[in-house]
Write a protein that binds this DNA or RNA. Structure first.
Lengths: 226, 226
DNA sequence: TCATTTTTGTTGAATTTTCAACATACAATA
DNA sequence: TATTGTATGTTGAAAATTCAACAAAAATGA
């Protein structure tokens, strides 16, 4: 377990918790590290959502069943990533997804009820842990909200402009670098890559946009202030 | 303030907190009820996100600025609804949206730092409050995730089937009633209403679907178990 | 019951996207 | 430097969406 020290330190769940306190706290929470081999199931769809998972090594995929019964990958979690936290914290319900190891992996399991339960020793780490968990879930919420706002536009052009104006707001500037390749941007916007290219080209011609690789600059009547 | 008793009782934030404890706790948290007139701003875009809001009366709109400077309504909050909680709990950042009263309203403001801070009297309501807040945010997260999964499909047919299979899973049955009119369903799926009608008709003809008004039944090779 | 309003389904035209195939530019590496 | 492979832009055809206008059906209310 101690060999995963660096991983735990990098995990947002343990931010601002002193290194020497982490293991004591995990013991207090009854957290357990478990080893899984490739394709083994960590959480199965339908079982009650109790545990928060932290990937210690390997990689874990969150999978979902399609309406046609097709398996779909919701996300892939790498070491230091936390998963199933929303389900565990939303209370009660059963898992609508499964967590399956993409290869041999080691996972830390923490009972969400223990996280929320009163702690006898009233360790202040515990409070920080709750705060961290809240922050993680709230931040994810904001990301989802933003993506939803972007994806819900009807056309590629609108999606792109919505995304770019978010980036502009984030950078306090109309010029910025995006963290995506064209293919990745298309994936994020949930549109066809070549169609996206066409759209970017046209926006350039129309003078609404300048860009070179990952650098973008919004031009024209694009409002900013107010 | 006491006149809003019923509203507070209906608010998810105060679930499982004894009625007689609510006001004491609010005092302990330094929560304040404020009156606003129509169009007055509760939270302004750009200011630090500190407070969680609870609508006591009237109605509050969460507004956002478009890339073209257009105002867009993200959501409308009715009495007992809570708003700005994700921003307040995600830590640090400034608000990317504004909260504006759609009419004369009364709003309860609670400092999120006080919610998370250690409570001297260590009231157990406080713990329940944190738990409730976590649950609210996590549940919203799941709703967002689901909607994202649906909306990110490329075609209306796929969006519809994704939505319907979520409903089927939720009801443990291929037959169920949906809580939307056609127009509302189209809005939820972010597609054109008439186009949606066309799609539903075709799916009926193809024998994949039966439906009558709000009643739907998935047919055919739609997998369910496993 | 009748009249009115709202909701839903249908149609065709215009727009847009997707998809496949290909050309070019760029990057990595032998 | 030449070669190879990846990323990006371009094109045209097929498919899907949006949009506007209208018709039919259902709900509402006088």
């Amino acid at each position: 377990m101690e060999k995963y020290f660096e991983i735990l330190r990098a995990c947002a769940l343990f931010e601002h918790i002193e290194q020497q306190d982490i293991f004591g706290m995990l013991a207090c929470l009854g957290a357990k590290a478990k080893e899984y081999s490739k394709k083994q199931v960590v959480f199965a769809r339908g079982q009650p959502a109790r545990y928060v998972g932290v990937v210690l090594s390997g990689s874990v995929r969150i999978e979902q069943l399609d309406y046609s019964g097709q398996r779909g990958i919701v996300s892939t979690c790498q070491p230091a990533d936390i998963f199933a936290e929303s389900f565990a914290c939303a209370g009660g319900a059963t898992l609508p997804v499964s967590a399956v190891c993409a290869r041999d992996s080691s996972v830390l399991l923490i009972d969400s009820a223990r996280i929320m339960a009163p702690c006898d020793s009233s360790c202040h780490f515990h409070r920080q842990l709750i705060y961290n968990l809240m922050k993680i879930i709230a931040a994810k919420n904001i990301r989802f909200h933003r993506k939803l706002d972007i994806i819900s536009r009807r056309t590629t052009k609108e999606k792109l402009l919505a995304y770019l104006s978010y980036m502009a707001a984030e950078n306090n500037s109309r010029s910025f670098y995006i963290p995506f390749s064209r293919q990745e941007l298309a994936d994020y916007l949930e549109v066809d890559r070549s169609g996206l290219s066409v759209r970017i080209s046209r926006l350039k011609k129309e003078g609404m946009l300048e860009c070179d690789k990952n650098f973008f600059c919004l031009l024209g009547e694009t409002a900013e202030g107010t």
